[in-house]
Amino acid sequence: MKTASPFLEIDADAARVTVRLDGADLSLPAGANLAAALLAAGVPVFRHTPVSGAPRGPFCMMGACFDCLVEVDGVTRQACLLTVEEGLEIVRAGPATAESADAS
């Protein structure tokens, strides 16, 4: 899941902690903005929309666009308004979510 990131960290000196992204361990800088940290870690897609299943990533970074929505500890949250902490459980909505919402 982690690829070469299109983003560079200017001062990558923060202590790292481990979070879980879709069940896999990921090392991110402690205390960093979660959306920025995920982008820098090479995670461009934060969710797939419930309407068409299209991929989305952070757009505004200021809490207004809601494209960086991820599920953190069971609640849908804006990643750009969260801080990286050890043990965060982050789940991204896959295209499948949209399908199951339409089912039955």
Partner: peptide
């Protein structure tokens, strides 16, 4: 404009200001 990787210029600035994260090929 909805594709991942498309952001506002303000977002680009916020990434630098708050996180020291800068886009490499933008």
């Amino acid at each position: 404009w909805t594709l991942p990787g498309v952001m506002t210029a303000g977002a680009g600035q916020i990434l630098i200001k708050e996180s020291g994260v800068v886009a490499g090929r933008a």
